[in-house]
Design a protein around this nucleic acid. Structure first.
Lengths: 212, 212
DNA sequence: GTCTATAAACGGATAGAC
DNA sequence: GTCTATCCGTTTATAGAC
């Protein structure tokens, strides 16, 4: 008989600290920072609130580490696509380059919902100290997108690029409120977002081959 | 000598109840529901927390009335544009129709920030009871937009229309996090949003006259 | 590493004086 | 209509036993 193991589940032993971090992130994503009490996080792990302080100095420390991992994952996803597109062709099709980044952003967003959703939907619920610490890291991620858009839309002014980046972020990030990737179709969804952004709402009527 | 009065400020005497409502809405918009204590709202009005209970039965009552006014204002703005476009021409240009609605939505959003921003950015911070009460009203507003998009994009499937509405909402509503209308330029901003949604990101290269 | 117990502060809400 | 005073629950965080 063969032992059935899920290939998707990492079998690395989850340390106490990591277990707490995941439980906290999950509740923060669900309820927001203030609404999530340490008692609730502890209860999810069948522990008592006081025990958490052996692993983390404070609730602020918890959210700070969750936020850092979240933006770290997003940055990682971006640079992975960046390196891959440099490797394949020196001057790839611009729409395809955008599509790859949109897909990667949506993928990392939804696959690590607990760690990333706070950034795009509940950042203001985090305490000011945590927000301030994260701003430089978030700025770096946003700057990468701004640079990407500048490259693939060379005729737009810097002001327009800035607005377009925020519009694209608004479209992509609002999806965490309603898109459920467990039903599948994240790739198709990424295509719709990309086509809408690139060709406009009437993209179904304006065939890509005609425009490109 | 003439008495200078600001034409923009309603000189209607603000009743105690209305003063409290505005102060509460302002703080809810700034800090979210949970982070805003009744003691803080009262302090803003140089009152004591207990006094608020003469005007409102509970904190839930306060947020409920704020949310109702917010969605009411948005609904009002939509129907105003709807009636106006019916009056002017029987089959107005579709992009222009969309532009008018986008402009109205952004206008009402930013001009009544305290009452509307909770809907588009902090709805999840409201208590479940208030959220449930508001869902039908919000659904009605969203249905109006869905119907509008269905009319001006007749070739898109219902599924695509649904995604496009959410994408448009994401783009418009995320603006409350970063767009500051007091610096002016809301009309120009509405044009960028509309053009991006309609013609795509390269709208500056694809001139409207060429596409229309 | 986890527990119990508790400190210290803050929240919404009520009662009754003025 | 607004105040003071207070009740009562909840929260983060700490101290010390095991």
């Amino acid at each position: 008989m063969t032992v059935i193991t899920s290939p998707e589940v990492e079998r690395t032993p989850v340390t106490g600290r990591e277990r707490i971090l995941v439980a906290a992130a999950t509740r923060f994503a669900e309820l927001g920072y203030t609404e999530t009490s340490l008692r609730l996080i502890a209860a999810d792990l069948e522990m008592k609130a006081g025990s958490l302080y052996y692993h983390f100095a404070s609730k602020d420390d918890l959210i700070l580490e969750v936020l850092h991992r979240g933006i770290g994952l997003m940055m990682e996803a971006f640079t992975t696509v960046e390196l891959a597109s440099e490797a394949t062709s020196d001057e790839a099709d611009e729409r395809e380059r955008l599509a790859a980044h949109v897909s990667a952003h949506l993928r990392v967003l939804h696959d690590n919902f607990a760690f990333t959703s706070l950034h795009v939907a509940r950042f203001r619920t985090a305490p000011p100290s945590a927000r301030e610490a994260l701003v430089p890291v978030r700025d770096a991620y946003e700057a990468k997108w701004t640079q990407l858009l500048r490259t693939i839309l060379p005729r737009q002014s810097d002001e327009e690029i800035g607005v377009l980046r925020l519009v694209l972020f608004g479209a992509m990030n609002s999806s965490i409120e309603w898109f459920h990737p467990e039903r599948g179709g994240l790739d198709a969804f990424a295509e719709i977002i990309t086509d809408q952004f690139w060709y406009g709402a009437a993209f179904a009527e304006v065939s890509p081959s005609r425009v490109g």
